[in-house]
Simulated assay, not measured.
Amino acid sequence: MTDPFTAVPGAVVDDGRLVHLGAPTTEQRSLAQGTAVAPLGDRSVLAVTGEDRLSWLDSLSSQALTALAAGESTELLILDPRGHVEHAASVVDDGETTWLIADAPDAAGLLAWLTRMRFRLRVAPRDASDEVAVIGGTAAAVARAVPDALAVWVDPWPQVGAGGWGYAPAEPHPGAERDWSEAIVPRAVLQRLADAAIAGEIALAGTLAADALRVAAWRPRAVTEGGERTLPHEADWLRTAVHLNKGCYRGQETVAKVHNLGHPPRRLVALQLDGSDAMLPERGAAVRRDGDAIGEVTSVAHHYEEGPIALAFVKRSVPLDAALTVDTPDGVIAAAQETIVPPDAGATAAVPRLPRLSRRR
């Protein structure tokens, strides 16, 4: 089937994703200002129905979901027995169906695991990606573009949720003014949006623009910052995806021990990259101190205000003021680190803070 966005002037479409429309940095500004929306072809949607759906998901995940109200947004993590992040999903319930928005590469594995864990409960998880799509943008922009959405997930990041904990010492948090929602819509809406964009009635942005805004807000994502090595603490994910006071779930013991008694072995940092030579690293590129590899890049973007930026995991022992470099295909570039998770992160060393409503410059 032909992707409807291929006919939009300037559109670059790759494997069902509208990557950009020729001006990714301009698209970022439009997304942030609420004058454009982004079709998120890199997302998949799982639908969970049945009377036991919320208590069932509560028992399996890091998040307290039993009392989730219709229309309320949160997110969950599925951890392995050692507390590492296996899957992540954005969560919104409409009163009859719990919708899980997941990174496309992660959705099949998440569904397979959920299906194995049904037992005799009244739950029915399924992949709804052939029926629905996801549209992202500010809350107001999404409401204007798709007023007939089936459900809308409002990103809670970086607010510290009930039972959560924030490690990032920055105040205000760089994501404090993040206004991001993702609407679940029937797939027929994509053609309507494409037609409106061709007619000049609506502005669109690509996934490159959406991801750049995420990186600038230090927002972790399963397909980049998640994985079999990642503890939620390392990415400051306890802030929005973990309830520290809920009942038992797989991986909970590690979450509690690391938070209360220890420190995560790695920590996520934000990198301001030297943009003088227009060289950007690739995901997985080595981060070095004095030539020795001490971490790796997880996400890279060229932000419309901050220029080239990245997120990276580094060893906890790396000093906060250490001079770092990053490998690129064309050579090594300098990188200045900003602390997301401090080396002494833990219950006795970090105090949860609600971000102020102002933006880092």
Rank of each mutant, 00 (worst) to 15 (best):
V19A: 04
R267D: 03
W218I: 00
L357K: 07
W180Y: 06
V223L: 03
D106E: 14
L60S: 06
A104R: 15
V85Q: 05
D3A: 00
V19K: 03
D290S: 14
R288E: 11
P9I: 09
H263V: 13
A32V: 13
R359C: 00
G50L: 05
T26M: 01
V332G: 05
E171F: 14
A222G: 14
T66Q: 12
D179N: 14
A139F: 01
A102N: 06
R361Y: 04
W113G: 02
D274L: 00
A69D: 15
L208G: 03
R118Y: 02
A145T: 12
S30A: 14
A188Q: 11
G166F: 12
P125M: 01
A32R: 15
P186H: 10
R214S: 01
D344W: 12
A141N: 10
G227A: 04
H302P: 00
T254V: 15
H87Y: 15
G206T: 10
L110N: 11
P342T: 08
D106V: 09
R116E: 10
A151N: 09
N260C: 00
S90L: 07
D277I: 00
Y304K: 01
R360C: 01
G50M: 03
D292M: 07
S90I: 00
P9S: 07
E27D: 11
V341W: 14
R316I: 02
L150E: 15
V142C: 03
A194C: 06
T339H: 09
W153I: 06
W99K: 02
R360H: 13
S55I: 08
R43K: 15
F119R: 04
L77D: 12
A170K: 13
Y249P: 05
R356Y: 11
R359P: 00
S30C: 01
L354Q: 14
S30I: 00
R43P: 07
G226S: 08
P147A: 06
A285Q: 11
V314I: 15
L244A: 01
H243S: 11
W99D: 04
M117C: 07
I202M: 08
A350H: 06
A38V: 07
A112Q: 11
A104G: 04
K246M: 01
A70T: 06
L311N: 02
R250A: 00
A241R: 12
R239K: 11
F313M: 04
S358L: 13
I135L: 05
L100F: 12
L261G: 00
S317W: 06
Q159V: 12
P39M: 03
V255P: 02
G175Y: 12
P156D: 09
P9C: 02
L150W: 09
A89I: 02
Q337A: 15
G275L: 05
L208Y: 01
A203N: 13
L354P: 04
I340E: 03
T2N: 08
A210L: 10
V146C: 03
H243R: 06
E27L: 05
G226R: 07
A293T: 15
A335Q: 13
V255L: 04
A170S: 13
H173I: 08
R43A: 07
G200K: 09
A88I: 03
